[in-house]
């Protein structure tokens, strides 16, 4: 009997995210329902990784769930009282790379190789002697190593492989076995699927396995790499999902972004939008209560289907001409 992969949001987070885990938390279709569940379950000492982290990561830092970050970019850094203060008083350890750097590190993690070279970072202050080592949380490990290629002498920077303990993602659909399908822009998430030890994915739809297997180009990662699938419509709100809904910039501008300005603002946001909402459905109801019953409907995407269907057809074997000279 196959392992049961489809489960509730609380069960997935409870079973597959542990305090202290390194967590890849999305790039574009943000796993917001999963992020809010991490807050609800009061996960602690998480390390957040990803090429460019936006409000999902800042939320987890302000919620006290995460105390380490490795990224090329963090949104909200300029807002008062968040990232800089926490770095200054030691509550947050921050390691900066670049988008390409993190994506390469995830690829190395996925391939099982120990490190990977890049031509980025040469000549920059990332490589200044005082920035060569992590700020304390990976004792003994260098952050990178500059070297000349043994093959042609070209200068390069070696980056260590990155293997998240858990990758949390949102995607368009999955089947009950756990095969994940997605489309649209993929950022660094393609390799984050493959680099993770455990993978939790919320999806807009659970579809029959026949549907998945009829269009395998759409599959991001096979079921064998997936720990949990959660059926969670609007699980990326207020970010967007191609074919389903667009970004909710009104909510981001009026509710979420101001909540990242201070601990007090975040506490108020958390009380109203996370702690008072025991489920993601309750959160969505609150969005509708604030912005009207059609608040989510207006975000819905208009259909935009390919002009030509994709055809994976083949000629039946028994119709093929036989080569008599093969024994």
């Amino acid at each position: 009997m196959a392992e049961r992969k489809v489960m509730s949001l609380p069960e997935a987070v409870e079973r597959f995210v542990q305090d202290g885990d390194t967590v890849y938390c999305g790039y574009l279709m943000l796993p917001m329902a999963l992020v809010m569940e991490l807050v609800r379950q009061r996960k602690r000492h998480l390390e957040l990784v990803g090429a460019s982290l936006v409000y999902q990561a800042t939320m987890l830092v302000l919620a006290g769930c995460a105390d380490r970050v490795r990224t090329g970019y963090i949104q909200g850094a300029l807002r008062p009282g968040s990232i800089t203060e926490r770095m200054a008083d030691g509550r947050l350890r921050f390691e900066d790379y670049s988008n390409q750097g993190i994506a390469l590190m995830l690829m190395a993690g996925a391939l099982g190789i120990p490190f990977i070279p890049t031509r980025s970072f040469l000549g920059t202050d990332y490589l200044a002697p005082e920035n060569q080592h992590h700020t304390g949380h990976y004792p003994g490990y260098r952050k990178w190593q500059e070297m000349e290629s043994p093959f042609d002498g070209q200068k390069a920077v070696l980056l260590p492989a990155l293997r998240p303990d858990v990758t949390i993602m949102h995607a368009q659909r999955a089947d009950e076995e756990g095969n994940i399908q997605w489309w649209g822009h993929k950022g660094d998430a393609r390799w984050a699927f493959w680099a993770a030890r455990r993978l939790i994915v919320t999806v807009e739809e659970i579809v029959p396995s026949d549907a998945v297997r009829s269009d395998p180009d759409r599959t991001a990662v096979p079921a064998s790499r997936v720990a949990a699938v959660v059926h969670c419509p609007y699980g990326a709100h207020p970010s967007g999902v191609a074919g389903f809904y667009d970004f909710d910039y009104r909510f981001v501008g009026e509710v979420l972004a101001p909540a990242l300005d201070s601990d007090a603002a975040f506490a108020a946001f958390r009380g109203e939008w996370i702690d008072a909402c025991p489920t993601h459905d309750a959160y969505l109801e609150r969005v509708k209560a604030r912005y009207g019953p059609d608040a989510l409907d207006v975000l819905k995407a208009e259909p935009h289907r390919p002009l030509l269907p994709v055809d994976y057809g083949f000629a039946p074997w028994f119709n093929l001409p036989v080569r008599e000279d093969i024994p």
């Binding site: 090329g72 790379y97 988008n99 980025s120 005082e130």
Partner: peptide, 17 residues
């Protein structure tokens, strides 16, 4: 200074690359 910044800015993103 990096070790004791007055402000942390968002970072490279892809700009450095």
């Amino acid at each position: 200074p990096r070790q004791r910044p007055r402000a942390k800015l968002p970072g490279s993103g892809g700009a450095g690359d």
